[in-house]
């Protein structure tokens, strides 16, 4: 229950401030631009069906998806713990009769809530596509499953970086570095051969999303996203435990 209370407090604080709407507006403009470009491209083609429809391309088929995600994910998670520390509210929180698990769960739920809120406007894009052609409901569902999985991964690692970093800026930079590292490692699959290529493809979030967007749900990607999120989640609780020990 205390985790839910913390999550509510986080969400309320965030959505009561203009920051949430500025971020949402910026997000809608950036993703809207990439969707518009893909729709214009589709309109110029004779026939775009199957895996080449604008939704498949939008949900991870191109770099246009990753540019905003890589920038916005750190922005969303940097404040989770780093802001508490900057405002001096972290110490009271850690001395309160609330366990580290509850704090971490609450913060994580809040981050996931905002991540999901970011993607709600994309349902509008799905509706737009249905007006000019058909959509594959299964592929769209798989795309959202992929987005949820990527959200788990990005939010949990962002939260860990925020718990480790002394300031929000450092948290954002560390988070960007981690996400960027996995992203670049994924690109490495085009450089290396053999087993190395397969391993890099396994950790490549781009590969994950491009498969999800086509309607392929691969257990490897789900295991990677869930276990890596669990790892970051547990590490965050341990960071908090350390801080509590240190007093």
């Amino acid at each position: 229950m205390s985790a839910i209370a913390i999550a509510k407090r986080e969400v309320r604080a965030y959505f009561s401030s203009p920051t949430a709407y500025v971020v949402l507006l910026a997000w809608v403009y950036v993703t809207g631009l990439s969707f518009y470009l893909l729709m214009s491209f589709s309109a110029s083609q004779d026939s775009v069906g199957g895996s080449d429809n604008p939704l498949t391309l939008f949900f991870g088929g191109t770099v246009l998806f990753w540019l905003p995600v890589l920038v916005f994910a750190p922005v969303m998670t940097m404040r989770l713990f780093a802001q508490e520390r900057a405002t001096g509210t972290l110490e009271p929180l850690l001395t309160a009769p609330v366990g580290e698990w509850a704090i971490t769960t609450g913060k994580f739920l809040a981050a996931m809530f905002f991540w999901i809120a970011l993607w709600i406007p994309s349902l509008f894009y799905v509706w737009i596509v249905t007006r000019y052609g058909s959509i594959d409901a299964g592929a769209v569902a798989a795309s959202y499953l992929g987005i949820f999985g990527i959200g788990l991964f990005y939010m949990s690692w962002g939260m860990l970086m925020s718990a480790l970093a002394p300031t929000q800026i450092v948290a954002a930079i560390l988070c960007f570095l981690v996400h960027g590292l996995f992203f670049v490692a994924g690109i490495g699959q085009f450089v290396y051969q053999g087993e190395g290529r397969e391993i890099l493809s396994y950790v490549s979030v781009w590969t994950h999303m491009s498969d999800f967007a086509r309607g392929i749900v691969d257990t490897r990607y789900l295991v990677f996203q869930v276990t890596m999120s669990a790892l970051a989640f547990v590490l965050t609780t341990q960071v908090l435990a350390f801080r509590r020990l240190r007093g």
């Binding site: 199957g50 592929a139 396994y202 392929i216 257990t219 276990t227 590490l235």
Partner: peptide
């Protein structure tokens, strides 16, 4: 925990399933 996560990922890497959610089962 890190070791367990690596182990799980190794197993998932070796034994996996790809399910096709497309309506026309193109994959």
């Amino acid at each position: 925990l890190t070791l367990i996560v690596f182990q799980l990922n190794y197993l998932a890497f070796r034994h996996y399933e790809r399910s096709d959610w497309t309506s026309d089962e193109r994959f």
